[in-house]
């Protein structure tokens, strides 16, 4: 159930980004729900489910995008590892930990993305504005993280309650 909600939420957000969000949001401003949900799954249901989720969502973005197949899958798997390692230093159960770790991973993901695009001869203009938007993306994704964590944790608690009742 938790994974179903997580996959559905992320899918809707990716489709929304392709339909609405990218048309109204500034270029390079990216609230990354995939990383937030990956972090939440990592905390609540362990590594394997979170890794599959990160890879699957990355693949879906690759399918819908004109980039190289596997690019975003790789990025999100790297982000997953960063979350896994970062969770040793930041407590993902606290609001501060969620904000800091998710923000840092989003920032790291954006930097890695620019590096990969540059490696594939993709012209990226490195400007102060670009890094400002990366910072803004990290900050706002970090801000939204506790909310998503609490929604998914609520779903998990409810599912666990229903399972107990059924048993």
């Amino acid at each position: 159930m938790l994974h179903g909600v997580a996959w559905f939420l992320s899918l809707i957000y990716i489709l929304l980004k392709g339909s609405v969000v990218n048309e109204v949001a500034p270029l390079f401003f990216d609230i990354d729900l995939v990383i937030v949900i990956t972090a939440s799954l990592l905390m609540s249901s362990g590594s394997a489910g979170a890794a599959v989720f990160a890879f699957g969502q990355g693949m879906l973005i690759d399918l819908l995008s004109a980039g190289f197949l596997g690019l975003f899958a790789l990025l999100y798997v790297i982000s997953f590892l960063c979350l896994e390692l970062g969770a040793r230093f930041f407590d993902l159960r606290s609001v501060q930990g969620q904000f800091i770790l998710v923000g840092l991973v989003v920032l790291f993901k954006e930097v890695i993305l620019v590096g990969l695009l540059d490696a594939f001869a993709f012209e990226v203009v490195l400007s102060a504005a670009l890094f400002f938007w990366f910072g803004a993306s990290a900050f706002f994704t970090g801000l939204i993280a506790p909310l998503i964590f609490s929604i998914l944790s609520h779903v998990q608690t409810r599912t666990a309650g229903e399972t107990k009742e059924a048993a």
Binding site: A48, A51, F55, F68, L69, L71, L74, V77, F80
Partner: peptide
């Protein structure tokens, strides 16, 4: 160990795809 293996496998798959 399993977590790292999962990561290694997915990175490998993504790199192969790229």
């Amino acid at each position: 160990i399993r977590a790292y293996w999962v990561w290694v496998i997915f990175v490998f798959v993504a790199l192969v795809l790229i």
